[in-house]
């Protein structure tokens, strides 16, 4: 599971360098995000621009990663590709996360 921290704070931006977040990698993904999140930053953005496919296990892993964050910390999502965006809309998880159209928009703190 490859993640890259591209911005260290305000917000911290974590890029997911994987094409798929599915049942085969859900647990590793959750653990890797938890490890990558800086406890010092209030807002963390997951850059999903490289992710072409997510299933409900992957969705659950993102929720689990969010639950593992500290109080007062927030997990936003950015750059969802069409299929990933569809999964968030169909499960209404798009109402739980702030989703930014681009990483630049996430940096500026604007919603979608």
């Amino acid at each position: 599971m490859q993640l890259t921290v591209t911005d260290t704070e305000d917000p911290q931006i974590i890029r997911v360098d994987e094409g798929r977040i599915d049942a085969a990698v859900a647990i590793q993904f959750k653990d890797a995000v938890r490890e990558a999140v800086s406890p010092a930053t209030a807002r963390v953005v997951l850059d999903l621009g490289a992710v072409e496919f997510i299933d409900s296990s992957g969705l659950g892993a993102i929720v689990a990663a969010m639950k593992g964050m500290g109080q007062g910390q927030r997990l936003d999502l950015a750059a969802l590709r069409p299929m990933v965006d569809k999964v968030f809309r169909l499960t209404r998880m798009d109402t739980i996360f702030v989703i930014h159209e681009t990483v630049d928009a996430a940096r500026d703190g604007r919603g979608s």
Binding site: S56, G60, A61, M66, K67, L90, T91, M93, I96
Partner: peptide
């Protein structure tokens, strides 16, 4: 049936979406 989302953060569902997605699509 889709899992309820009107719960506290720590109670948010991490699964239970599979059949909802299958039926919708």
């Amino acid at each position: 049936a889709p899992p309820r989302l009107d719960v506290g953060t720590q109670e948010l569902p991490e699964g239970g979406f599979g059949w909802h997605l299958i039926r919708r699509l």
